[in-house]
């Protein structure tokens, strides 16, 4: 790990000033010379690997007092960005009214990491692409823009089949973000010129021709909270992986439904483990809306979700697996008792 200056941010202004001053001269944000430290489970790991090389660390944990509240008010939900994954996962009202959120968090990482990692840091978690994480590979367009992509013709079993470009096929690794995508969440952002909000779906950027730019956050900006409108008791997170616990998704689905008298009034489908960003499967949702559920409908929705998928040498199995995960998750959501 390279040397860095350690600084504690005692209020949000101090944090965004310290981060913004260093970030302004840098593009992209992930290579900014000053990086915020929350749980540290991604940042410290990537600094040890020499993938991230900040010269200043701004510890934002002292902001937790104002930024870690879990606030379901009966109709809507607000989650502070510095809330710990473990605390949100076991919260009674989250489990009851937002099971897709609770389960996406419970099925992620390990108990230790969930105790450390924050919601804001979790959505900013960086890809587990082994060529990105191993700096002995020169060619990684995310780390070294323009250098090529070792994963294209390398061992790409874990890589993405949706949202890929000819520059990058790295998978977005998280779970919680899929729940936020499915629930149409809003993200609150604090920066040097105050706060702003935007749909969470606009936070992550597909790789396109610049895989090194991963989010739309501006220099010095920090995620301060997430909000969700309404309650979603009929929602599930289903995760298929190589091990039963403590493993990243090969394929996952976040499903939220509103079913009345056997008819699907509202359907939300988000996919994980298979895409370069937290993925909303709107084609699948369109097929489901207004219909009565049966296995054929689930299959057609799953097919639609993966209609544009592009597999490579080792990861084509994710298309077949992903469809089954979507169909099974839909089945679970329809039949769950609420």
């Amino acid at each position: 790990m390279r040397p860095f200056l350690y600084q504690r941010a005692t209020d949000p202004d101090m944090a965004v000033q310290a981060l913004g001053a260093a970030a302004a001269a840098n593009n992209p944000l992930t290579q900014a010379t000053a990086q915020p430290l929350a749980g540290g489970t991604t940042l410290i790991d990537l600094m040890k690997l020499d993938v991230m090389r900040p010269t200043a660390i701004v510890d934002i944990n002292p902001l937790a007092q104002g930024w870690s509240a879990i606030e379901p008010d009966g109709e809507n939900l607000r989650l502070g960005a510095l809330a710990k994954m473990s605390d949100v996962a076991v919260h009674d009202e989250i489990q009851r009214n937002y099971p897709v959120i609770a389960n996406s968090l419970k099925l992620a990482a390990s108990a230790q990491l969930r105790n450390m990692a924050t919601l804001g840091g979790n959505v900013m978690q960086r890809t587990r692409c082994s060529y990105f994480r191993d700096v002995s590979y020169e060619n990684c367009n995310k780390r070294n823009p323009g250098s090529g992509c070792a994963a294209m013709d390398g061992v790409n079993r874990m890589h993405a089949v949706l949202g890929v470009s000819d520059q990058c096929i790295a998978t977005y690794p998280g779970d919680f973000a899929q729940a936020l995508i499915a629930l149409d969440a809003t993200v609150e952002i604090t920066g040097r010129s105050g706060s702003r909000s935007m749909p969470f779906a606009e936070l992550h950027k597909m790789p396109g021709s610049s895989p090194d730019i991963e989010t739309t956050l501006q220099p010095g900006e920090l995620i301060s909270a997430f909000t969700v409108s309404g309650r979603w008791p009929r929602s599930v997170y289903l995760k298929a992986r190589d091990r039963q616990s403590y493993e990243f998704a090969l394929s996952s689905a976040a499903i939220a439904l509103d079913v009345q008298d056997g008819t699907i009034r509202e359907a939300r489908v988000a996919l994980g483990g298979v895409a370069t960003v937290p993925w909303r499967a709107r084609e699948a949702e369109a097929l489901l809306k207004g219909q009565r559920f049966d296995d054929g409908l689930a299959q057609r929705a799953a097919d639609a979700a993966f209609a544009d998928a592009r597999g490579r040498r080792h990861n084509s199995f994710k298309i077949a697996l992903g469809k089954r995960v979507v169909a099974r998750a839909l089945q679970q959501a329809v039949t769950m008792e609420i």
């Binding site: 350690y6 430290l37 540290g40 489970t41 410290i44 790991d45 040890k48 690997l49 660390i57 510890d59 473990s86 390990s110 108990a111 230790q112 990491l113 105790n115 450390m116």
Partner: peptide, 23 residues
Amino acid sequence: DHGQCGACTVLIGDRRVVSCLTL
């Protein structure tokens, strides 16, 4: 030393954490 194996687990407050990823 990368937060994957748990051998470094300690309690901070009443929470278990991996001490290798905690500054």
